[in-house]
Amino acid sequence: MTNPNNQYFIHESSYVDDGVTIGEGSYIWHFSHLLSHVHIGKNCTIGQNVMIGPDVSIGNNCKIQNNVSIYKGITLEDGVFCGPSCVFTNVNNPRAMVERKNEFRQTIIKKGVTIGANSTIVCGNELGEYCFIAAGAVVTHDVKAYALMAGVPAKQIGWMSKAGGKLNDDLICPIDGQKYRLTHDNFLLEAISD
C-alpha cells in the first residue's frame, strides 16, 4: 500500500488488504489486519491485534484499543472510543455449522460514543451520540444519546456529557460547564447558551 508523503503510519507487522483507504495522521499498530474496502478516517489510532472489515467505515478521530474486531455491518462515526477487548457481534443466533454471513445486522455507533473495556455490543442496535458504555456491560438494545449504560444486560444508570463528565441532577457538565436539558420524552439535549 502506498503512503504518499508518510501521511499515516502502519507498523510492519500489520496487514492491509487491497481497497483500503487510510486518512492522514492515522496510526495502525502491531499485528492488526485491515480487510478489503475498509475506510479509516483521519487521526485515528488502531491498537494492537485489531481486525477491521471487510466493507467497514471508521470515522475521523476514532481510537480502537487492543484486541478488537469490527465486522462487516458495523459503522463507527467520528470520535468513537473502543476500549480494549470490547466485542461486537454480527448475528444473533450463530451456529458453527450454519452459514449466516447474509444475516449480518447493521450496527451504528454514533459520533463521540465511548465503549468500555470488555463490553459487548449485540448487533442490530444503534448507540446514540456521546453515550457511554461502562466496562463489561452487555448492550442488547438501542441506546439514547448521552446515556450512561452499565450492567448485564446494560441499563441506563445516568447521563454523560459530551466532554465525558457524569451529570448530576443539575445537568451541568463538571468538566466544561455545558448545560443540558431533558425533553418531555426523556431525551437529553445540550441547552442553548445564554
Results as ranks from 00 to 15, higher is better:
1 M>I: 14
1 M>V: 15
4 P>A: 13
6 N>C: 05
6 N>Y: 05
8 Y>F: 15
9 F>V: 12
13 S>L: 08
13 S>H: 04
18 D>L: 10
20 V>S: 05
22 I>E: 02
23 G>W: 06
25 G>H: 05
25 G>R: 03
28 I>H: 03
31 F>K: 13
33 H>V: 12
36 S>V: 07
37 H>N: 15
37 H>F: 15
37 H>W: 10
40 I>W: 08
41 G>Y: 09
42 K>M: 10
45 T>G: 10
46 I>D: 09
46 I>F: 04
47 G>E: 07
49 N>D: 14
50 V>C: 13
54 P>Q: 07
56 V>Y: 09
57 S>I: 15
58 I>E: 03
59 G>E: 04
66 N>V: 01
67 N>K: 04
67 N>G: 00
69 S>Q: 11
71 Y>C: 05
71 Y>P: 07
71 Y>G: 03
73 G>S: 05
73 G>H: 05
73 G>E: 03
74 I>H: 03
76 L>Q: 00
77 E>C: 12
81 F>M: 13
82 C>H: 04
82 C>Q: 04
82 C>Y: 01
83 G>E: 05
84 P>L: 08
84 P>E: 11
85 S>E: 13
85 S>V: 01
86 C>D: 06
87 V>K: 14
88 F>A: 09
88 F>Y: 13
89 T>G: 11
93 N>D: 13
95 R>W: 12
97 M>G: 00
99 E>V: 12
102 N>E: 15
102 N>W: 03
102 N>L: 11
103 E>D: 15
105 R>S: 04
107 T>V: 07
107 T>R: 00
110 K>R: 02
116 G>T: 07
117 A>K: 00
120 T>I: 14
120 T>H: 01
121 I>W: 01
123 C>M: 07
124 G>V: 06
125 N>G: 01
126 E>K: 12
127 L>V: 05
128 G>E: 11
129 E>S: 06
131 C>D: 10
133 I>K: 03
134 A>M: 10
134 A>W: 03
137 A>L: 11
138 V>W: 09
139 V>D: 13
139 V>H: 12
145 A>P: 10
146 Y>I: 02
147 A>R: 04
147 A>M: 04
149 M>Y: 07
151 G>A: 07
151 G>R: 05
152 V>Y: 02
153 P>V: 07
155 K>F: 02
158 G>W: 10
160 M>D: 03
162 K>S: 02
162 K>I: 13
165 G>V: 12
169 D>Q: 14
170 D>K: 14
171 L>S: 13
173 C>R: 10
174 P>N: 11
175 I>G: 08
176 D>H: 06
177 G>S: 13
178 Q>W: 00
180 Y>W: 12
180 Y>I: 12
181 R>Y: 14
183 T>I: 11
187 F>S: 12
190 E>Y: 04
193 S>I: 08
